[in-house]
Design a protein around this nucleic acid. Structure first.
Lengths: 121, 121
DNA sequence: TCCTTGCTTCGACGTCTGTCGATACAACGG
DNA sequence: CCGTTGTATCGACAGACGTCGAAGCAAGGA
């Protein structure tokens, strides 16, 4: 990474899904699209984050309390750090309910990835 | 990353496609699967690499000479460095023909990504 | 009001990464 | 041969990243 700017991935706009980027095989990516896609892939480029994401995604109801998914082999502050990264990338959303914080997969995230990979069928 | 091991992504075996990992939403990822998938996403987590990959993928014939794709805003050694990373991740293959080196998208890479995202049609 | 539990933030640390210029290597043409 | 052009490797450096323990904040119970 040469820049330290935060590139936020917009896969959701109010009212519906907005594809974040053109398919990766459809032509040369613009600088801006490349940065958006890279931010998304980067968020998934760590084994711990991937496991956290898949734990949330596969949890009944599509959401999970931090305490349900925290057992991924690193300390609790590190789990929190990775969940924050996933939040910032727009892949997860979080909500406090009483004592616990619940994480959900942001809607249409997987569909947005599918669009990038040109798998709209 | 805490470890420095090289995790090689095997999307191709002799004779056919072998899905690298289970779908990301199908259940909790094993440590090993998470590392393989992370390696693939990591290779695509840089804007320069993403642009190089898309240039190769969208080039007529599915392959491109380095000289055709090298204009991505960084120096020639840096381009070479990124192409090497994409090769090591199993996303691109390369072949020297005379003076020039041609890069191709490794077959079934995109399909392997689709399997991860559970988009099997 | 205190203590306990769940989660986040802070500060520090070693390691990995992207970048470059310089240099080396490969293939070809004179 | 030697020079030229295309590509890869080397060595160095600044910045980003993953990790941890310590400390902070939020919510609820005694």
């Amino acid at each position: 990474m040469s820049k330290s700017e935060v590139v936020e991935l917009r896969v959701l706009e109010e009212g519906g899904v907005v594809p974040c980027c053109p398919p990766i095989t459809a032509g040369e990516l613009s600088q801006a699209d490349a940065e958006k896609m890279a931010a998304m892939f980067k968020a998934l480029s760590d084994p711990v984050r991937l496991r956290l994401f898949s734990k949330v995604a596969s949890h009944p109801g599509g959401e999970a309390c931090v305490c349900d998914i925290a057992d991924v082999g690193v300390s609790q502050p590190t789990v929190s750090h990775h969940l924050k990264k996933l939040r910032e990338a727009g892949l997860l959303t979080s909500e406090r309910r009483g004592t616990w914080v619940y994480y959900q997969v942001a809607p249409s995230v997987v569909a947005a990835m599918a669009a990038m990979l040109d798998l709209r069928g």
